[in-house]
């Protein structure tokens, strides 16, 4: 039983990956080009014109360390949100645990993440950033990020099966979210009386933690990391529960 769905999960993920690779001329080159262009534009705008100060860290590096994980979460959510409607011919014809669709959509985005992470590593080397032992915590932070990404993807994909509006507003929502998260700016630039609200945005805690362990060689502060873990876990559990409940009616509506 479990092995059957494991094979299916792998096949569906491979389908996403292969199809993407075959459909366009440059294929996976886009995965690298898009974030690089983003990085370039944002670096020029914010370090040159707006003069975001990042102390000793070069701004492009400061930005990229946060932009890479953010891009993964944003793309994974986008891809997962459309996954139920994209697979409607399967969902209405074959009985499968439906969570397999958003999950494989997210898994396919891991390839993109690995490619951009490699670029990030090259950048770190080029900018002569010290490699701290705290780097060992990156997988742990990533685990939290993944839980959160999956959880929120469950909410969006299940709701999108009923209301296609989600797909349409998602782009705007993600842009807003990007600006509400200290990615292109530093958390210190937020007025101290408003900083409290960052606790409700797990992506803020996640990118800050990445910066702490990669750029500063310190462990993330407890009062930031613990709420982040907690909220991410909550999203995962509640998202799964919601998705499961809704999934009984997917075939009725899509």
């Amino acid at each position: 039983m479990v092995s059957r769905y494991r094979d299916l999960f792998i096949q569906l993920t491979l389908r996403e990956i292969k199809a993407k690779y075959k459909q366009s001329l440059l294929g996976y080159a886009w995965v690298i080009i898009v974030p690089l262009v983003n990085l370039l534009v944002l670096s020029i705008v914010f370090s040159y014109f707006f003069k975001v100060s990042t102390d000793s860290i070069p701004y492009p590096i400061y930005l990229f360390v946060a932009l890479v994980p953010w891009t993964f979460t944003a793309n994974a959510i986008t891809s997962a949100t459309g996954s139920i409607s994209a697979n409607n011919s399967l969902i209405t014809k074959v009985f499968l645990p439906r969570e397999i669709f958003p999950l494989s959509a997210i898994a396919a985005k891991l390839v993109d993440l690995i490619l951009t992470a490699l670029i990030l590593i090259i950048f770190l080397i080029l900018f002569k950033v010290t490699f701290f032992p705290t780097l060992l915590f990156v997988p742990l932070i990533f685990l939290v990020q993944l839980m959160f990404t999956i959880g929120i993807s469950f909410f969006f994909s299940a709701t999108n099966a009923f209301f296609r509006d989600i797909e349409n507003v998602l782009g705007v929502f993600l842009t807003l979210w990007l600006y509400l998260t200290p990615i292109i700016y530093s958390p210190q630039m937020i007025p101290p009386n408003l900083r409290f609200f960052l606790n409700f945005n797990p992506m803020a805690g996640i990118v800050n933690s990445y910066r702490d362990v990669i750029l500063y060689g310190v462990l993330p502060s407890f009062e930031v990391f613990i709420p982040t873990v907690f909220i991410s876990l909550l999203f995962l559990v509640a998202g799964y529960w919601y998705f499961k409940k809704r999934s009984w009616y997917f075939a009725d509506v899509i």
Partner: peptide, 20 residues
């Protein structure tokens, strides 16, 4: 159901087979 047009017959056998 679940065939992907961009993939070959061979790849689709694996895909559709696991689906079934």
């Amino acid at each position: 159901a679940g065939f992907h047009p961009e993939l070959t017959g061979r790849e689709n056998i694996y895909l559709n087979g696991t689906i079934l």
